[in-house]
Design a protein around this nucleic acid. Structure first.
Lengths: 150, 150
DNA sequence: CTATGTGCAAAGTCTTTGCTCCATC
DNA sequence: GATGGAGCAAAGACTTTGCACATAG
């Protein structure tokens, strides 16, 4: 479960087709192209971005299909929605446990891994909360590009 | 800098008036009421919620004034915008370093403090990022209410 | 008195929905 | 062939903006 896996496109496409097959989702041209666009756009794409990517190959795609399809993918656990910036919905195809860096200047989002954090105990003060599913860290700072420029 | 402070309304109102005075912001009735509504609504209110609260005391308040005023407050560092749930913009008046619990069922947001986390070193893998300003943890789970019900 | 801030209305975004036709299984 | 999915258009939700009047300093 590391970054390499997220770049193994054929494997991800296989998994996608498997999920569709086993869960009764029809394997349409549109879904395939949308999923492909999602996994190829590393930088946590917006719906609009995915739409534009898909349109390059599928001229007749409509924006609402992208919305609907992405919602379906989310529901079936193929992607995740992330809320990191001012209300631009973005998606994450990296399903491994990871965290996010957000550049305060260019708004770039980068994934990072932090096993040490993943293992530390939560504070006692929140023991009244149960079934902790996800614990994510968001870090705001300057990415290397923006830091150079400055 | 702890939870108690965030509940000290008079002190917070004083600070608000100070900031307005020193930074040349006119102290209008609307701004005062909006700020009051913000600090009194503990649960990370939405713009709509603030609007409704203020309207109880100020019948003529308009929604766009709330939007504009909140943007001003944010700009002047009086509140912070949080992105934790499906694109409902919410605000945080707790300016102390803290983290968030988000209930996966009722969507409630709760603050928590985690000094141990605040002090641990970031992984070496992200040393190419600079000027880390904020490091926040978001934890998803079941709040005590929802856990009881289930 | 002056310039900032508010209210109103209108326009922008972004997202969802109803319906008909199409394509996958 | 049957049914789930796509495309179209329209409506909804949320947010921003231009302008004229009001009000804090």
């Amino acid at each position: 479960m590391n970054k390499k896996n997220t770049l193994d496109f054929p494997k991800l496409m296989d998994r996608f087709e498997q999920v569709c097959k086993t869960r009764g989702l029809r394997l349409t041209h549109q879904r395939t192209e949308i999923f492909r666009a999602l996994i190829r756009s590393m930088n946590h794409p917006t719906t609009e971005f995915v739409f534009n990517q898909v349109r390059k190959h599928l001229k007749t795609i409509s924006l609402d299909t992208v919305y609907r399809t992405i919602a379906t993918f989310e529901e079936f656990g193929l992607i995740k929605r992330v809320h990191l910036l001012d209300n631009t919905t973005r998606f994450d195809t990296n399903l491994a446990v990871h965290h996010h860096l957000v550049c305060t200047k260019c708004k770039r989002i980068e994934d990072f891994y932090w096993p040490d954090f993943d293992q530390i105990k939560l504070p006692k003060t929140i023991s009244h909360w149960n079934k902790i599913e996800v614990r994510n860290v968001v870090i705001n700072g300057l990415c290397s590009n923006c830091n150079k420029k400055k």
